[in-house]
Amino acid sequence: MSTYLIYAVGGALIFSIGTYALLAQRHIMHKVIGANIMGSGIFMVLIALGKRTPDGVTDPVPQAMVLTGIVVTVALTALGLSIAKRYYTLTGLDDLDQDPPACDGR
């Protein structure tokens, strides 16, 4: 069993775990962590598949993609967490499926 295949399969597994958490978990923090794990799974797939060049040389393009992806994911996480904190402060809720006490708004 070659290295890249192990990591590719593992990445796919990790991606599924993250997807499950993002969709099925109700706590907002679990969703955020789930999204991050999803991303990591994909990065792993990317890098692993990038290794699969005929001459064994690592392809730089997937690495560049992963680096970009990491930065973007952090930005998304920061935004999600700041919304979550604000929401919790306003409503005391950490679960988007529950109705907030009052919906005001212009």
């Binding site: 290295t3 890249y4 990591y7 990065f43 792993m44 890098i47 692993a48 290794k51 690592t58 690495q63 992963v66 680096l67 990491i70």
Partner: peptide, 11 residues
């Protein structure tokens, strides 16, 4: 650690 194993130390 996995990235290192996959030959991507910068990642």
């Amino acid at each position: 650690l996995a990235w290192v194993r996959l030959g991507s130390p910068d990642v």
